[in-house]
Nucleic acid binder design. Structure first.
Length: 569
DNA sequence: GCCGTTTTCGGCCCGACTGTTTTCAGTCG
């Protein structure tokens, strides 16, 4: 049983208990345990890890026992019983925005409603309005919520939301009443997918801002409209929440709205321990504000150093901060080159020279041209002979540069049996060999793992590109044992790519952290197919930061000389 | 259900908005 499966079961347990009306702190305990497990960098099902379960944060003897039962037998008696509860099917209702555990239970108990379809019909027929606490408006909202759930249930890739949220920020900035404005929420934490965009502004005239916000041209629907907080859905179908506070509260509000929720709860609990109340307006002792203007003040009020947004997931960052062990995360300024870009020699849009110029404009010291070597026609993969010609061309281009180097590389296919799509003599002639799976994604885990491990063991290979093959929102990662892949990388001194292509971000943050723990080096590369794509490096850096990656963990922070030396050895 | 250099019992983060209510419960983040 995988961590993900255990997580799903714990969440489901929490939801059923919630609907049953259990003690909310108990249901939250299950959620917290689920969150802990979902962010582990190791699988619980390996034997040596099982003893540690009870020591994990938020997992005590009760839940630890349940997890052990799941690992041991693949089933959990407690959960099997819960699933028989008449309330178990109602967890589907919780996916409907505006419906929580209380209303889910209410419509079931009073009207016998068991499915979303029945709920929709009851709302349409005006049967909900007679229930205590519900009215006509609630009926309408539930109908709307059901439609919204069906339409917008997905999360959006970070790179889809990011520019659109920035555009809204720019629009709002034009208002003279706005003194400060920033993104917050999962967008600021740079999660790989985003459900909605949070924006925070400082103003003395919040109502004016609200008015302007809900009348932006991008707005398709106004979800909520209050004095200091409003929510809209854009024509691109994602929700934006805007909150306005006073300047004295900006730090506290930034911290609060950036989250994560789990991180906030921990910080506020630390505050409670010190007799402080922390909310979005500031840090208070009794009624006296003692901090809140900056995030640094908020952290410092609970004796912590500043914690970067990307780390705020309650995945150990608070403990690390308390011990003074926070990582010094990688930043854009450390990146000295891009180790995976394409040109019009294969499926890219620009020439070698154009890509090189663009990389140099970014201040890079090098760029590796890694066009496809593939028997798949669609990418115009290079044959061995064309690789030789490209090497000559790159040498020519390099004569035009000083203090900048175009590296000869390839993105060679890993065939289903683990062989590469270029001969080893050709591969040896290159500065850098990036190998990747581009076909037969559906191999069983054992075969896929063996396939990739064979490529890692191939002495010509330096880097494994987009190691899990996921396309966010479109394709699940292929079935591969990343522990074995990483162990092979460690044993053979090979590098894993963090592909910054916005729909990939592969490695994920969790895998980055695992790689770091195992001492494996990362290459943050864009896989750019045109010059503009070089900018995507920022999404890769953000994902790396979420994985606690420091400059020393990243090969493309090395100088050219060091990098070439590293690749040769 | 978890957790503890104040605690092994009694706490557990905090507030805005909505809709249905006359003071609040439910939902959300």
């Amino acid at each position: 049983m995988t961590n993900q499966e255990i997580t799903d079961i714990l969440v489901h347990i929490s939801q059923i208990l919630d609907i049953q009306g259990e003690n909310p702190f108990k249901t939250r305990a299950y959620l917290r345990a689920a969150q802990t497990i979902s962010s582990l960098t190791f699988q619980l099902n390996s034997l040596e890890n099982r003893k540690e379960i009870g020591k994990l944060p938020g997992i005590g003897s009760g839940i630890a026992k349940k997890i052990e039962e799941l690992l041991e037998t693949g089933k959990l008696g407690y959960y099997e019983d819960l699933k028989k509860s008449k309330y178990a099917p109602l967890t589907e209702f919780l996916k409907i925005p505006g419906i929580g555990p209380k209303h889910a239970r209410l419509v079931h108990d009073k009207l016998g409603i068991k499915t979303v379809e029945e709920l929709e019909k009851a709302a349409a027929d005006g049967k909900l309005r007679v229930l205590p606490g519900l009215g006509e408006k609630a009926e309408k909202n539930i109908l709307q919520g059901i439609q919204q759930m069906r339409k917008y249930k997905e999360r959006f890739p970070l790179a889809f939301i990011y520019p659109r949220a920035m555009a809204i920020l720019e629009d709002l900035k034009k208002l003279k009443e706005i003194k400060k404005i920033t993104i917050a929420g999962s967008l600021r934490r740079m999660r790989d997918t985003i459900a909605d965009a949070d924006v925070l502004a400082v103003s003395d005239n919040p109502e004016k801002i609200m008015e302007a916000f809900i009348n932006l041209p991008q707005v398709a629907q106004v979800v909520a409209h209050g004095h200091t907080k409003s929510s809209i859905v854009t024509k691109d179908r994602f929700q934006v929440d805007l909150r306005v506070v006073g300047a004295e509260s900006f730090g506290a509000a930034s911290h609060y709205f950036t989250g994560s929720k789990a991180h906030n709860i921990r910080i506020r609990s630390l505050g409670v321990d010190k007799g402080l109340k922390i909310n979005e307006y500031g840090v208070f002792r009794k009624d006296k504000r003692i901090a809140g203007k900056t995030e640094e003040e908020v952290f410092s009020s609970v004796d912590l150093p500043y914690i970067p947004p990307e780390l705020r997931e309650d995945r150990g960052e608070i403990e690390a901060a308390q011990k003074g062990n926070l990582p010094s995360l990688v930043e854009a300024r450390y990146i000295k080159g891009d180790l995976h870009v394409h040109t019009n020699w294969s499926d890219g849009n620009n020439t070698i020279e154009e890509m090189a110029m663009a990389a140099r404009r970014k201040g890079y010291h090098y760029v590796a041209i890694c066009d496809h070597a593939s028997s798949m026609g669609i990418v115009h993969g290079l044959s061995a002979e064309r690789v030789q010609r490209q090497i000559i061309e790159i040498r020519k281009v390099n004569k035009n540069f000083k203090n900048f180097r175009v590296l000869c590389g390839t993105e060679v296919d890993i065939k289903p049996d683990g062989e590469l799509d270029l001969d080893s003599d050709t591969l040896r002639a290159l500065d850098i060999v990036v190998a990747a799976v581009h076909s037969k994604f559906t191999q069983p885990e054992k075969e896929m793992t063996r396939r990739i491990v064979r490529a890692i063991e191939n002495p010509s290979v330096h880097i494994i590109a987009h190691p899990t093959g996921r396309i966010i929102g479109k394709r699940e990662p292929y079935e591969v044992d990343m522990d074995k892949v990483m162990d092979a990388c460690k044993a053979n001194g090979k590098i894993l790519e963090l592909n910054a292509y916005p729909e990939r971000l592969d490695l994920s943050d969790i895998h980055c952290r695992k790689a770091k723990e195992k001492g494996i080096k990362i290459a943050i590369s864009t896989d750019a197919h045109m010059t503009d794509h070089l900018e995507w490096i920022s999404f890769g850096i953000a994902t790396a930061r979420r994985g606690w990656i420091e400059p020393k963990d990243v090969v493309n922070t090395m100088t050219l000389a060091k990098l070439l030396n590293y690749l040769r050895h």
